[in-house]
Design a binder for these strands. Sequence first.
DNA 1: GTCTATAATAAGATAGAC
DNA 2: GTCTATCTTATTATAGAC
Lengths: 223, 223
Amino acid sequence: MSNSAVTLDEAVAEAPRKGRKNNPEKTRESILQAAIAEFVQLGLSGARVDSIAERTQTSKRMIYYYFASKELLYLAVLEKLYGDIRNTEGKLHLDELAPSEAISRLVEFTFDHHDRNVDFVRIVSIENIHYGQHVMQSELIPSLNNSVLQAIDDILRRGEAQGIFRSGLNPLDIHMLISSFCFYRVSNRHTFGSIFQIDLSADEVKQRHKQVICESVLRYMQC
Amino acid sequence: MSNSAVTLDEAVAEAPRKGRKNNPEKTRESILQAAIAEFVQLGLSGARVDSIAERTQTSKRMIYYYFASKELLYLAVLEKLYGDIRNTEGKLHLDELAPSEAISRLVEFTFDHHDRNVDFVRIVSIENIHYGQHVMQSELIPSLNNSVLQAIDDILRRGEAQGIFRSGLNPLDIHMLISSFCFYRVSNRHTFGSIFQIDLSADEVKQRHKQVICESVLRYMQC
DNA sequence: GTCTATAATAAGATAGAC
DNA sequence: GTCTATCTTATTATAGAC
């Protein structure tokens, strides 16, 4: 009830005036979190601004106050989820490992990362259904992911110099080979699991698949 | 103007009565085609029944007459697009090829198939956003895809017997390795292309990628 | 089987008080 | 900065004539 910007008159008046303590940062953040949940679960078209408001401690009016439109709120969600994973490759210290171990580590990291971040996988799928037109408009997102390519290129060079990797390999191809498998087994787990009667989230399957992609990539690169 | 079920009175009356010639099959099919276009482009939530009606030579009423609801129309679209690719593996005559060639052929076929059928890739992505709950309800779809596994298993056995493939490989893993790459480069081409500034539909990239997945799979399987 | 018109509801966005 | 109430438009679905 201690509020810095309350006039004397108001202070006297009624019960704590439903309006929670004014806290812009917290309000904005709570809207963003509610929006993440809604958009990830229902997609851009399926999400309802009213539902987002209901998930929040705030009102619908605040959504428009802070984010101007449903579309811009979605963009904020997209940037948030992309941003959460930025630069994480940098912390793997791949340059300290032998080339083969570095690749294994990168693959395992990518695998676990997708496995743990279903939200991210879903929002990227959703964005592609919308032809990637928001990522395209974003200033932030394209600037994030380029460190992976650099990391792979470094490993590639070292492995080539040591005579264990063949030459002429393309870092982007390697990245795609890794990402596609790690992404797909999360993004398509429902249809794939349903059609082939398999639970892709089972731990034994998960471990096996991690090894599959690890071996595939390494064997692809080796001489 | 020749119509088999017209009464004498009606025949006299006005101009050909906007109602096109009664043709149930054609009407149903034209609705289905319009629905494919709409759902593939906009997703299940984004699609509008009115828009589908506009794409058709028919009316909105007919959509409900033939398909009962938006959801069931979507299911029909899903089954149609899944059905279009059924049994195509059977026509590849993989059993007539040496194991390695059989795998190459299967990979190339899968690659081209996804590349050419963007509609299919999109509807599968859309379905996964909806947690695969329609595929789950479908009687038809799960019955389709099992021939691939059988085909891979045959190749695996032959290759193993000839001492060129290692033992203990799982057909489903191989299928996933192939599918994930072929699917991803289509499903995620917008975000991937935007972030890494590459046009995945360019022919040279396409040919290179086809070789990447081909080599990866073969190397993964070889002793 | 096909049409037009409309009911019922829900959605995105805004007004205006406090 | 925050709230409730509401405008406007669009959407799914149906009625009823022919």
